[in-house]
Amino acid sequence: MKKLMLFLTLVILSKAYAYADNFNSFQLPNYPIEKGVSAPFAGFIGDWLIVGGGCNFPTKPAADGGSKVYYKECYAINTRSKAPEWTQITDLPLPVAYGCAVETTQGLVCIGGMNADSCLTSVFLIEPQKNKRGFSIRTLPSLPQTIDNASATAINNVIYITGGNQQNKGKSLFRFNLNSGTGWETLPSYPGPQRTQPILVNDRRHLYLAGGFQAPTKETESILSDDILCFNTERNQWEYFSEIPNEEDGEKRCLVGGAGTQTSTHFILTGGVNYTIFKNAIEGKTDKDYMRKNPMWYKFNDDVLFFNFKQKKWSVHPNTFGMARAGGILLYHNDCLYMICGEIKPGIRTPEIIILPDIKSLIR
């Protein structure tokens, strides 16, 4: 009996330490859309986590030829509550996924995206009502052109969006000052290949555009960007910044479909697809059972990458529970990282909301 108890104690301790190494993650209640969504709008308004839109395959799996459904439902949950529950709030103006959401002092700005009918130029603000008992939606100036599968970030309520699918295969950077609300400006295009599904973060003076891909054509192979470009917001100028740290085995890391956020001292990147597996897939170099593999087979990235602005130094925290998502949304709030929904493999979403607490202790 003593040996059995010792064994059980060691098992429990080993699991506890494993979780400690893994940020001791925990979860909020599952997102109310049963099978989860990918590429929703998501962000915080105060301590309320707002999630809306997104898409999934609710009836028949994608592997069996199912149809993708886009959603306009929007939900909120108070992360400070002792017993947090999701509450449905006002619907989005239309079903949408693959847009960008940016947290601002006025609320959550939702930009572009697409649905089953079209790509979009729409921009709107989810804001708290004056009585602070709910949320409402206000229309903002539209984008100069349609854009989806892009990435956006904000510096002092000045919003930037780039990458993704733009008209005429464009690579423009767009800027909108929410405080003045005078409309979108078109800034210099980023250099090099197109970057669909990249990550855009900032250090309050510079933008950092990480990863993304350019689709193949009949004449050319796909290009998966494994580097980061930098845009100086004072000089309005792009330049090369850094390679993305390789995988542990030396393989390139592209972060396509990944997610990012920033603190006052670091930017943080995670999630996204495997470089080689994804490149083969979009170039048609896969077998007939490609969509039916176990989620682990696709090797979605589960490392969390930190870049320290002051030290100009990377640190990588590998094998982090819940980060292996494509089309998930990464948020930083009250010293915690939140991973919102996303795909766990091509065509399969999850409703899980993963929280990694006490991130501040790792980025001092």
Results as ranks from 00 to 15, higher is better:
Lys2Met: 11
Lys2Arg: 12
Leu6Ser: 10
Leu6Asp: 12
Leu13Ser: 11
Ala16Glu: 11
Ala16Gln: 13
Ala18Lys: 07
Ala18Ile: 06
Asp21Ser: 12
Asn24Gln: 14
Glu34Gln: 13
Ala39Glu: 12
Pro40Glu: 08
Pro40Ala: 07
Ala42His: 08
Phe44Asp: 08
Asp47Ser: 15
Ile50Gln: 09
Cys55Val: 06
Cys55Arg: 06
Lys60Val: 15
Ala63Thr: 09
Asp64Thr: 04
Ser67Trp: 04
Tyr70Cys: 01
Tyr71Gln: 01
Tyr71Met: 02
Asn78Pro: 05
Ser81Asn: 10
Thr87Phe: 11
Thr87Leu: 13
Gln88Glu: 15
Gln88Phe: 10
Ile89Cys: 09
Pro93Gly: 13
Val102Ala: 14
Glu103Gln: 15
Gly107Thr: 08
Val109His: 05
Ser122Thr: 12
Ser122Pro: 01
Val123Lys: 00
Phe124Lys: 01
Ile126His: 01
Pro128Asn: 06
Gly134Asp: 09
Ile137Trp: 02
Pro144Phe: 09
Pro144Ile: 09
Gln145Gly: 10
Thr146Tyr: 12
Asn149Thr: 13
Asn149Val: 07
Ile155Asn: 04
Tyr160Met: 08
Tyr160Lys: 04
Ile161Met: 12
Thr162Val: 04
Asn168Thr: 11
Arg175Thr: 03
Asn179Met: 10
Gly181Cys: 07
Glu185Trp: 07
Glu185Pro: 00
Thr186Glu: 10
Ser189Lys: 13
Ser189Thr: 12
Pro191Ile: 08
Gly192Phe: 02
Gly192Asn: 03
Pro193Cys: 09
Arg195Thr: 00
Ile199Asn: 00
Asp203Asn: 15
Arg204Thr: 05
Arg205Trp: 04
Ala210Phe: 04
Gln214Asn: 00
Ala215Thr: 06
Thr217Ile: 14
Lys218Met: 14
Glu221Trp: 05
Leu224Cys: 02
Asn232Lys: 07
Thr233Ala: 07
Trp238Ile: 02
Pro245Tyr: 11
Glu251Ala: 15
Lys252Ala: 10
Thr261Leu: 05
His266Trp: 11
Ile268His: 02
Phe278Val: 03
Lys279His: 08
Glu283Trp: 12
Lys288Asp: 15
Tyr290Gly: 06
Met291Thr: 09
Met291Cys: 10
Arg292Gly: 04
Asn294Met: 07
Met296Phe: 13
Met296Trp: 07
Tyr298Asn: 06
Tyr298Gly: 02
Val304Thr: 05
Phe306Tyr: 13
Asn308Ile: 08
Phe309Pro: 01
Thr320Lys: 07
Met323Lys: 05
Ala326Val: 13
Asn334Thr: 02
Asn334Glu: 14
Asp335Ile: 00
Cys336Glu: 10
Gly347Val: 05
Gly347Arg: 02
Arg349Cys: 09
Ile354Met: 11
Ile355Pro: 00
Leu356Asn: 01
Lys360Asn: 12
